[in-house]
Amino acid sequence: MKKILERGDILKYLRKTMRIMRLSLFLIMISTAMAFSATSYSQNTKLTLDLNNATVKEVIKAIEDQSEFLFFYQEKHVDLNRQVTLHATEQDVETILNQLFAETNNIYVINDRQIVIGVAPRRELEKQILRLKGDIKTVIEQPQQKEITGKVTDTDGLPLPGVSIIVKGTTIGTVTNNDGEFSLNIPLNAETLQFSFVGMWTQEVVVGTQTSINVTMEEETIGIEEVVAIGYGTVRKCDLTGSVSNVQGELISDRQTPQLSHALQGALPGVMVTRNGNRPGSDASIRIRGITTIGDSDPLIIIDGRTGSLNDINPQDIKNISVLKDAASASIYGSRAAAGVILIETERAVSGQSSFEYDVQYGFDTPTRLPEYVGAVESMKLYNEAR
């Protein structure tokens, strides 16, 4: 049996439908308004901050006090004690947060009135990339190098350990090992290597395009062929058995002093020269074998085979000076040589050659301070008091 709707039932159904439609429209309007307010609150809310050397925590609290924003964060991700200075007048919260977290790893997300603060791995990655670029640039800017290897031997072909090898004009260097071998990284623009060793001549080798350099070092034999006077003749220094010191006349003449004894100061090993005063022309005492017991500690002076005095000869006329320091000199000159012997050989004239030399030296003696003298009466009073 079919049910027939009456007019009253139809009206009741229509009213119910209209109420449902009104309620749906109201909910839609409320949702739209809430979404619009959620979007526009962060943009429309203006904040004013004037903080000097405030911590991040104090800035967050100031924002919460002036607005309805709530902050959510983990303390291990945010440096709350970092001090900042913020001056903002009628600024939105996004602008303020950009200033607050500038140059940090923190990021933020604004959702309605809630602000979540976190850490951005991307920023840390960007920093690592920048550091890596800086390291690569440093490596590129460093001068390129090449390796030089080789061996150093003596004239007999034996390896020389401990030979110093440096790039000329720099502090880049190395030494040879027990087998005389070396390996050295040098700049591409290096031109010369210096090889040096005690008792050997220093050598310089041009690098050029070489990567392997072998060097043979020669012994430094300077001085052993030098001829010295020993009282009864001359002998080569390499054949000498006694204690003898020698100095050439060029060294004496270069010292520019009128007294020969002054010129010997510091010129001969084992010879002690002490000046007796600072006056111009003052003499000096010379000690070779110390203080002797015969009453005279001055050495015996022999000038061209005859005894003399150092003050009797012009330093410019000296050719050679030899000092006999051991007791063997007493076998030639007797007890007079107990304090040592100084043998002086002067220049000789050369046949067929004429020369004339003129040398003048002068000096001034100026007192550093002149004392003030008392008068005659005061002087006599002081004299009587002293008596």
Rank of each mutant, 00 (worst) to 15 (best):
T346R: 00
F364G: 01
A330Q: 04
A376D: 15
F356R: 00
K61L: 15
L310R: 00
V56K: 13
Y108H: 07
S331N: 11
Y41A: 05
L310P: 01
D326W: 06
Y73I: 11
E219C: 04
T293H: 06
I186N: 12
V93P: 04
W201N: 01
A229T: 06
I20N: 01
S322G: 06
S355H: 01
P258K: 12
G375M: 11
I107Y: 14
V228I: 08
G157E: 11
G233K: 00
D65I: 14
E219V: 03
L51R: 08
R19I: 10
L260A: 07
S253R: 05
P187D: 07
K16L: 13
E94V: 15
F26T: 12
A328C: 10
V207M: 09
I294D: 10
K168I: 05
S261M: 12
Q43G: 12
S285H: 04
I148T: 02
T292A: 13
G223M: 15
I186W: 11
E220M: 09
Q114T: 05
I172W: 10
V244L: 06
L23Q: 02
P299G: 04
T17C: 07
R255K: 02
I344E: 06
G352C: 10
S297C: 07
N106R: 01
A38H: 01
N384T: 08
S309M: 14
N105F: 14
T274I: 15
M21I: 09
R22H: 11
T32K: 12
Q142K: 13
I302A: 11
G334E: 09
D9F: 10
M34D: 14
V377N: 14
E124D: 12
F356L: 07
S331F: 05
F101Q: 03
Y41I: 12
R306K: 04
N214R: 10
Q128P: 02
S297A: 07
G223T: 01
T241H: 06
S24F: 08
G223Y: 07
I10C: 03
G281K: 12
G173V: 09
D317P: 13
T221E: 03
T104C: 13
E124V: 08
K12P: 12
E357N: 02
F69G: 00
Q128F: 01
K237Y: 08
S261W: 00
L264Y: 02
G305E: 00
P258D: 13
G180S: 08
G8A: 12
E347I: 01
F197A: 02
G208C: 05
P143M: 11
T307D: 04
L370W: 00
V227R: 14
K381L: 14
M217Y: 12
G363D: 03
E218R: 10
I136V: 09
I107E: 06
E218K: 05
M272A: 06
G242W: 08
S329L: 11
V244D: 00
Y108C: 03
D239M: 15
K16T: 11
T155G: 02
E225M: 03
S253Y: 12
Q353T: 00
A327E: 01
E378Q: 09
F26R: 08
Q142C: 09
G8K: 04
D365Y: 07
S212H: 07
G340Y: 03
Q128K: 01
L5H: 02
V78S: 04
